[in-house]
């Protein structure tokens, strides 16, 4: 097993930012918010309220997602499909159909399974830094420097203090039920990436084990720092 620090973790960090609504799960749990450095008494972002209420009542949220962005190098739009699952206090799991990739994020780190490369990357709590930043926000606190601006009848722009990591702000659009249906994050070099979320389901939680990945036999595992 190899250990790598820093640069390779940029992917999961960016992923963590992308999974911003994964972090909404924390809105249900004041304890998790405090653990993530948030202030449980502070007002929760308006864009997250209905989602947080439904998740608190059920314990688990699942949604189909589509990721789209224009890629001039590839000569067109890149589209990926997947699923996102969230559970309080700090768990997210994303799966992509086209690549077979699986990513899990927890307060104590996570794993990233990459079948095409026959490898698994494992990162610690620091590797999930980006996610934890959003945990702080959606854990019930707006936090210093965080702003939420209404951009339309069901649309908000949420901005984090700049961290040097992609995904410092997101435009969130809610559906008629008040659940997020579209998130646009401007990634590196100003490329907007749109996530469309469809078919929200709120079910019973499956627990931590559903958010821990194991490498299949023959896969190489790399540790990405602590």
């Amino acid at each position: 097993m190899d250990t790598v620090s820093g640069a390779q973790a940029a992917g999961p960090r960016a992923a963590a930012a992308v999974l911003l609504f994964a972090t909404l799960a924390a809105t249900c749990d004041a304890g998790a918010a405090a653990a993530a450095g948030g202030d449980a008494a502070a007002p929760r972002p308006a864009a997250a309220r209905e989602f947080a209420r439904r998740l608190a009542a059920a314990g688990r949220a699942e949604v189909y997602l589509t990721r789209r962005f224009e890629d001039p190098l590839a000569g067109g739009e890149v589209v990926m499909h997947g699923r996102l699952a969230l559970e309080p206090p700090d768990r997210a799991r994303i799966e992509f159909d086209e690549t077979g990739e699986r990513v899990t994020l927890r307060g104590d780190g996570g794993e990233w399974l990459q079948p095409q490369l026959e490898q698994m990357l494992r990162f610690g709590a620091n590797g999930a830094m980006g996610a934890l930043r959003w945990w702080t926000l959606f854990g019930g606190a707006t936090g210093p420097g965080v702003t939420e601006r209404r951009a339309g009848p069901r649309e908000w722009v949420i901005t984090m203090p700049s961290s040097g990591v992609a995904g410092d702000s997101a435009r969130v659009e809610l559906d008629a039920a008040g659940l997020p249906r579209r998130i646009v994050i401007v990634e590196e070099a100003g490329t907007p990436v749109t996530y469309t979320l469809e078919g929200w389901r709120f079910t019973k939680p499956r627990g931590r084990a559903a958010f821990v990945l194991a490498a299949p036999e023959g896969y190489e595992t790399f540790e990405l720092g602590k």
Binding site: G11, A14, L73, M80, E101, Q114, E187
Partner: peptide, 20 residues
């Protein structure tokens, strides 16, 4: 990678979550 000509090449190392 994308090839723009006999001496033009762009290589982008990226994942499903961003560019390295």
């Amino acid at each position: 990678y994308g090839i723009g000509g006999p001496d033009t090449l762009r290589l982008r190392v990226a994942s499903s979550f961003g560019t390295a």
